[in-house]
Amino acid sequence: MTQSVFPDAGGSQSDLWKPNRAASKMSQKAVVILFGAFAMVSVLTTFGIVFTLLFETIEFFLEVSPIEFFTATRWTPLFANPEFGIIVLLCGTFLTSAIGLLIAIPLGLLSAVCLSEYAPRRARAFLKPALEVLAGVPTVVFGYFALLLVTPVLRSFIPDMQVFNALSAGFVLGFAILPTIASLSEDAIFAVPSSLRQGCYALGATKRETITGVVLPAALSGIVSSVILGVSRAVGETMIVTLAAGQSPTLTLDPRVSIQTMTAFIVQVTKGDAPYGSIAFKTLFAVGMTLFVITLVLNLISYWFVRKYQEKYE
């Protein structure tokens, strides 16, 4: 009886069930190797980015001294008499990002609080997708919006403002990253267990006191990582600042004048024809490297903060 279920027991049953274990194991092995190779693509991408940036940056520093790169106060790499003061581009990036974050952080956090704590379910079901739509708007569309709709309005209030200016770019940049901060913070706030809120109410606190005193501190690690992601998105944002903030590298913190960010410089050079091996081409990667290092540091801070301060609730 027990013998008959085995295929090698002979008889007509043997051709009903043919476990080709060798083939099964082979396919398993082949798939693991194939998908493992696919997984390596993402690792190779990282190596590719680091290698690309390093390779051309080293080439760049063979021609331009690092001292000049970090201390010069003019940025004119495409001129006949070039100067390479990255501080000028850093200043432009700082200016637009700071304006954007001044808008996006408070509005984003308040939106997150509103969606999670105040909005009734039906309003939330409409508001959250609307914010997701805002997040899905291509940045070139935001660039159009900043240059052709926001700038004219701002100029009617501030008459001596230039057509290209950091204020308009920063303003729209703020609304472009607002959904990122709002949505990730909302996840963190929503995940705070309601027992904490109820405990706070039981002590006689009002709703606002509960939110600012208990809920937000409890969600702090998630909120901070959403803000840091917002910062790194602001720093890396390209199309809004290229279209609306201009192409004239200026060392200024005046939001009314035309400036240039790191990302806008990269677009400016690649849009024209920078032949391989030229100093303009190498400069591209030195600027890219600076940008990459900034976002990497931000990412590491976020990683460290979350590990250190993350609250775990049952």
């Binding site: 993402s42 790194s232 890396g236 390209t238 976002t295 931000l298």
Partner: peptide, 16 residues
């Protein structure tokens, strides 16, 4: 980490 790299950096990778 890759998800946090600005898209323009991917552009430089692609260019190179």
């Amino acid at each position: 980490n890759l998800a946090a790299v600005p898209s323009i950096i991917y552009g430089l990778l692609g260019l190179f």
